[in-house]
Amino acid sequence: MTLLEARALEVHYGGIRAVRGIDLDVGEGELVCLIGANGAGKSSTLRAICGLVARSGRIRYAGEDIGATPAFELPRKGLVMVPEGRGIFPRLTVEENLAMGAYARTDPGIADDLERQYAMFPRLAERRRQTAGTLSGGEQQMLAIARALMARPRLLLLDEPSMGLAPMLVAKIFDIVREIARQGVTILLVEQNARLALEIAHRGYVMESGAIALSGEARALLADPRVREAYLGEGAG
């Protein structure tokens, strides 16, 4: 079943077309990655899905048209985004940040989920009373992911979770993403680190200048000579 379906999605910033009428599908339970160079329109695509930028085209989520839905109503429907640059609230404590993740929820399971995040991210448990601005970059990224999980997402949009992190931390973050997917959360992952993204994803889309240049099974894309040359830093020979 298709959980997210975008058709002829366009984003304009003034006169610049950042996203040029792309089609994109994410099936329930899938881990799909969207890769491409800086400025290819990956983040704009995610922001358009969440209603953070003006967009045209059609976006359906869980069988419902969300093309005119304001951003703040999406978490209630299970569509949650971890924004680029993490977007933690620096002067709120770690625990308050996590509570903000559950803002849209009214069910009684919030306290249990908080403990679940602390079990998954022990570093955050140690620092629960600290303000989030005092955390290191890797800890902030974990906090951003844990905060998104507090919303009990059905579809999680991740915008460049590896950005600015040391290679060891990047590997750790990707392990976490894989684990979240294994638990049944559908994921759309935007990444510049094409190799790592394709290694954990089921399917991938390659974006170039606002359009989808290639798409297919992640394994096939990893083997595709065009992808190898342009995104994996390997010569054609």
Binding site: L52, F72, P83, F89, E96, M100, A104
Partner: peptide
């Protein structure tokens, strides 16, 4: 909860909206 949403909105309105806050 409202106070936390107010402080979150003050720090980053766009992300607060992504958390479900009607800013």
């Amino acid at each position: 909860r409202l106070g936390r949403a107010m402080r979150a909105t003050a720090q980053n309105p766009q992300v607060a909206a992504l958390m479900g806050v009607d800013i």
